[in-house]
Design a protein around this nucleic acid. Sequence first.
RNA 1: GUGGUUGUAGUUCAGUUGGUUAGAACGCCUGAUUGUGGUUCAGGAGGUCGCCGGUUCGAAUCCGGUCUUCCACCCCA
Length: 455
Amino acid sequence: MSTKPSLPKGVRDFGPEEMARRNFIFDTIREVFRTFGFMPLETPAMEKLDVLTGKYGDEGDQLLFRILNSGQYLKSVDASDLSDGESAVTPKIAEKGLKYDLTVPFARFTVLNQHAISFPFKRYQIQPVWRADRPQRGRYREFYQCDADVVGTNSLACEAEIILMIQKVFVKLGITDYSIKINHRKLLSAITAEIGASGKESAFCTAIDKLDKIGRDKVFDEMHRQEISTASTEKLVPFMELRGSNREKVSALNDMLGVEGKPVLDEILRVLSLAETAGADPELVELDLTLARGLSYYTGTIFEVKVNNVSIGSVSGGGRYDDLTGVFGLPDISGVGFSFGVDRIYDVMNELGLFPDDTQVFSTVLVVAFDDQSWEYGWQALAGIREAGIQGEIYPEVAKPKKMFAYADKKNIPYTLIIGESERVNNTYTLKDMRSGDQTELSLEKVLEVLNTGQ
RNA sequence: GUGGUUGUAGUUCAGUUGGUUAGAACGCCUGAUUGUGGUUCAGGAGGUCGCCGGUUCGAAUCCGGUCUUCCACCCCA
């Protein structure tokens, strides 16, 4: 008995026309990464769980896909583990997990290969990652990330290059209405200290991150629940009311934070000016104090890119992490990186109608034969067509003309090469333009000429 | 993880207060048309109504469970 097949929750197939569009995005991003000197890297789908856990916060750990051990995976589990529940059993039956992002595996790679790497090390990585999230619009359980990271340097040029790469990619993709939001973890810490809520940084961050979504009152409510005092949230008001250009915000912050804030603010200014002198559009970059980001390993500048007027979350994000390799035994390596979410960029471009209408052409010519002997004749001609670098195919059997031409139509093949008895006898080929319906009897040489120039 | 929502032909969807044989469009196949496609016309195939159970004389329809879809939280690309 056969069962109807189905796909697991949150994963998708990509058909031919979808792949053409996705590849356009991948190719664009890859090209930009290369022009900035990043080198390719791939890591396995699965990692040891101890590599993955603890890097993404508690929420992140819950979203890890765990892989059941092979063989007799229950042999080390006993009754007391079972009565203790999942937290006792899971580590004993699952030692591997699917990777959750590309940054942590990259850190693991860097540590394992430090003997072979010369720092600063720039790599890009385009691979799927998996998260056991509830699927939603723009949210999948398997999705592609395109990461570029630099490790082994503190230079703020790296941050500036991230801004430049984002802008370059979006220009090529035709996305114009978006903003690159930047902030700095140390700036958030300085503000937390200034309002007298030291030690509450992470609660502060998750709350303030929601400001544009739920409004000031609810953010304050949440902070109060997290034991941040009313006095503190009152002191926060002027920070929330900061408006103006990035430089105006920075100078205001300089006054508000005093000497404590100076180093961070200088960093931000430096990043902005490096980006601008290399041609970045300052209008698209916005210092946003409410940007916090959940991943716990960020320590410096953080980025997020949001396309305006679409109902999809951020399409890119990243930041600087001072010590990601430290947990793997290689301390004091600072890195900074970011990631494009191809799946969301695809959804955004679809929503904005940025993909060109022209349906992909997968074959330039279809060889159509009316009898078996002609098919053999066409088969040989096809070899010559392909030799000339033209994409072509033959209808694989002799069938009714209607069927063969309908195939060419459906597959959007612009030319058919028609062969029957008369062509075979004359040693010629009838080339038909499927759009106009015009057809002429030509030598193979002429056919190749038309196919090469005709497209 | 919490709350809601969806599921009927290959696809998009109708289907009345529970009532005989579950429909349409598009797609597919065949023919009109055995060396010429897109149009037109005629015909045809295709569904255990997501799955399991319950209520009922009778369930696509009501109830429960489960899986799936989409959405709001949480969080995130």
